[in-house]
Design a protein around this nucleic acid. Sequence first.
RNA 1: GGCCCAGUAGUUCAGCUGGUUAGAACGCUAGCCUGUCACGCUAGAGGUCGACGGUUCGAGUCCGUUCUGGGUCGCCA
Length: 597
Amino acid sequence: MGEALNGLKRTHYCGELRESHIGQSVTLMGWVQKRRNLGGLIFVDLRDREGICQIVFDTEISQEAFDKASKVRGEYVIAITGKVAKRQSVNDQLPTGQIEIFADQIKILCEAEVPPIHIDDNDEANERLRLKYRYLDLRKPKMQNYFKVRHQIASAARSFFNENGFVDIETPMLTKPTPEGARDYLVPSRVNPNHFYALPQSPQLFKQLLMVSGFDRYYQITKCFRDEDLRADRQPEFTQIDVEMSFVDEDDVMNLNEKLLYKIFKEVKGIEIQLPLLRMPYQEAMERFGSDKPDIRFGFELVDVSQAVKDAEFKVFSGAIAGGGSVRGINLKGYANQFSRKEIDKLGEFVKTYGAKGLAWIKMTDGAVSSPIAKFLTEDELNQMIQTMDGADNDLLLFVADKNQVVFDALGALRQHAARKLDLLDKDDYKFLWVTDFPVFEYDEEEGRYMAKHHPFTAPKDQDVDKLATDPGACLAKAYDIVLNGYEIGGGSIRIHDSSVQEKMFKALGFSQEEAEEKFGFFIDAFKYGAPPHGGIAYGLDRIVMLIVGTENIRDVIAFPKTQDAKCLLTDAPGMADDKQLGELYLETVPYKKEEK
RNA sequence: GGCCCAGUAGUUCAGCUGGUUAGAACGCUAGCCUGUCACGCUAGAGGUCGACGGUUCGAGUCCGUUCUGGGUCGCCA
């Protein structure tokens, strides 16, 4: 059993001691990182959240403390009291390396078993183990730093909003299931048998209602939940920095939010990002980068070569164009030698995962042009392609021919893939981009109707309101995403505050008056009583933290994250409910059968 | 739901075309050691090779199924 503190008080953190403390008597408490027993002399590296400090136990100072120190092992929790002294031999690797503590007293507060993972930044234990023993994983200095940075970011955001007249208001966690959008997490109601709450996918409707209430400027840093499949940058529960403002237009929201990003990067990272941030319409982003969240740290922009090959005998090309699609390419300029035939084949496999049927290529090395498609094209066509692509020696030109959406998806992903392979992505290079002018709708082939690309309360551009009924595909929205290094870190829009426009929107989405009333009645009603023009934005805090600390794994910046199956390896959630719990819910048997093949 | 990758001491890994008693490093245990900080030296413990089935005289290795974890497509208004 561990010893009691008995009123002993810590005087300093291990990591904060410096030469200026020499001569002082200090009491430190923490975990044993390492013990080095030299026989008549024992060194203990003591760790707490601020760092590591070397403790010395010497028989001449205290035989009792020395004997006790010989019993400590890794991760024991101890308290020591002693004098800070200049080191005989300095350790340049440690911030505290100039000093050490000669301990005259030690308390073993808690013994520890040998941990299943090393508490060491360089130890890359299997993530399964790290998640099971997350409390140990979080002891690593690197992980501790991630969460300190996370706190700093949230803190900078809060002070920014507080300074700018925003009010922090909480919205419900138990709310109404929504028919559109992501799958909801459902929570059964005990007192209302067979009725369910949903956990919020975002506070969207509530923050708009707060505008109707006249709060004018709102923010909240809050959890959101989406029951969809996970990714490296997606967790089922995540944190949003949620913002809404009244009497504003697109520019107002973007201009203010740039200042927020400026403050965060200045305070947390010491980087002054240049304002105003670059803005680019959605259409341009797609045409140039094949993505609505382009990474603009590098080139390899898409080029349309349809004109050069529209009449080609090669049906893969001319057929795609005749079918309304296009042939586009990217030029891996100067990197032809980095890709062997085999590696190019791999790139071909890569684009197939995005629906492309294949990857055509032209490799230009040592003054020669090699290409498996050359035999299907006239010399003139091939030359025109090369010319359009600005092809020169040492270039590798990669082409996809298909419907535009497939071409964009495939080349957009390929572009990023190639940059990563070529190690062109500098983590400390932060390139922001506002993507604006999104389409209002996206045609859903499966549903056979238009769906809201953002959400059904996004305002169309003023000049497009009349087109909602006649040409929905051509309508642009007052919507904007903020993109950083290929990640969508936030998105928002100006909302519809006019009932007649909202009605047109629902009509375009194929909702009858009754359906709209049933699904969003409470929301539509609210706008009958005087709604201000308003709009806002929501950031994915976890993604911002990821990018600032330089990890590609969102789990690294969430203290207790879920696995790909949305399980928690630490608590073993989700679990079965017991019969008593289930009985109290009076759930009816659900007539659902998993589809069988 | 599809595709891809991984699973071998506590941990990270090696283990070739199937071959006899499965290795290394770190960690751990014990002893020695007064200036270490990747302490050193000596000795030692530690394995159902994720699981099940198959092929074979013989399987960590080949085949099938399955479990676990990861990446990704679909999905994420």
